[in-house]
Measured scan of single mutants.
Amino acid sequence: APTVVALYDYTANRSDELTIHRGDIIRVFFKDNEDWWYGSIGKGQEGYFPANHVASE
């Protein structure tokens, strides 16, 4: 899976979202739409995150 790096912190608001912190490396499983992508950090943490909070490595 491609990876991206978090540019900003984001705290999940729902159970299907992913909390990310600046500098996190996120594996992107799919891009649901322009605004929300689905991916994982490490083991067990996965969910939707805002695409405008990340950039290609």
Rank of each mutant, 00 (worst) to 15 (best):
E34T: 11
E17M: 03
D16T: 14
H21N: 10
Y38A: 04
G39S: 02
D32N: 09
I41E: 02
S15F: 12
F29P: 00
F29D: 09
E34N: 08
G44M: 11
P50R: 02
D16W: 05
T3F: 08
S15P: 10
T11C: 10
K31T: 09
A55M: 12
A6H: 02
S15E: 13
G39C: 01
T11K: 08
R22H: 04
H53N: 08
F29A: 11
P50M: 10
Y48L: 08
F29I: 07
Q45E: 06
P2S: 15
Y10F: 10
I25V: 12
E34Q: 09
F30D: 12
G39D: 00
H21I: 08
L18D: 01
W37A: 01
Q45K: 11
K31L: 06
A6S: 03
R27L: 05
D35I: 11
D9C: 06
Y38F: 14
D16E: 15
Q45R: 14
E46I: 05
V5L: 07
G42D: 14
E46L: 06
V28E: 00
R22Q: 15
L7K: 12
G23P: 02
T3Y: 05
G39M: 01
I25N: 11
D32S: 12
D35P: 00
Y8K: 13
D32T: 13
F49P: 00
F49A: 02
E17W: 01
T11I: 12
V5Y: 04
L7E: 09
V5W: 07
Y8L: 09
I26V: 09
W37F: 05
I25H: 15
A55K: 14
T11N: 11
A6E: 01
K31C: 10
K31P: 01
G42S: 10
K43Y: 10
R14M: 09
Q45G: 07
N33A: 08
V54P: 05
P2Q: 15
N13W: 05
H21Y: 05
D35R: 09
F30S: 15
D24F: 09
P50N: 06
A12T: 04
V4T: 06
N33E: 07
G23M: 03
P50H: 03
F30G: 11
D24C: 01
D32Q: 14
A12R: 07
Q45S: 07
F29E: 14
I25C: 09
D32L: 12
S15H: 13
A12Q: 04
V4Y: 09
G44R: 08
Y8I: 09
D9H: 05
G42E: 13
R22D: 02
H53E: 00
W37H: 03
Y48G: 02
A12G: 07
A55P: 03
I20H: 04
K31N: 13
I41A: 10
K31V: 06
F29K: 15
T3N: 08
W36Q: 04
T11L: 08
R27Q: 12
A51K: 07
D35Q: 11
D9L: 00
V28K: 03
V54C: 14
D24L: 05
V28H: 04
V54L: 02
N52V: 07
I41S: 13
A1L: 15
L18K: 03
F30C: 13
K43R: 12
H21S: 12
T11F: 09
A51Y: 04
K43A: 14
F30T: 13
E46P: 13
E57P: 12
D24N: 04
V54M: 03
D16N: 13
N13A: 12
E34R: 10
T3L: 08
A55G: 14
Y48H: 07
F29L: 15
Y38G: 01
Q45H: 10
P2N: 15
Y38C: 01
D32I: 08
N52H: 07
V54Q: 03
D32P: 15
E46F: 08
T3G: 05
Q45L: 10
N52F: 03
F30E: 10
V5R: 11
K31Y: 08
H21V: 09
Y8W: 08
V4R: 00
K31D: 08
V28W: 02
F49Y: 02
D24Y: 06
Y8D: 09
S56C: 14
T19P: 06
I41D: 14
N13P: 01
D9A: 06
D32F: 12
E46W: 08
T19W: 02
Y48I: 00
R14A: 11
V54E: 03
D16S: 14
K43L: 11
A55D: 11
N13E: 14
Y10E: 02
N13C: 13
S15G: 09
H21L: 06
Y48V: 05
R14G: 11
A51M: 03
F30A: 15
G47N: 06
E57N: 08
P2T: 10
L7D: 02
P2D: 15
E46K: 13
G23E: 04
I26F: 05
L18M: 15
G23C: 02
A12K: 11
G44F: 07
N13L: 13
H53S: 08
F29Y: 06
T11V: 10
D35H: 11
V5I: 13
L7M: 14
G42W: 08
G23Q: 00
V28A: 00
A51W: 06
D9P: 05
V54W: 03
N13S: 13
S15V: 09
Q45F: 10
A55N: 08
A55S: 14
S56D: 12
S15D: 10
D9W: 00
H21A: 11
T3R: 10
E34M: 11
K31G: 05
E17G: 06
E17H: 13
D24E: 05
Y38W: 09
G39L: 02
L7T: 07
G23V: 01
R27P: 06
I25M: 10
V4F: 12
A12L: 05
A1C: 13
Y10L: 02
G42K: 12
E57K: 14
W37D: 05
T11G: 06
K43P: 11
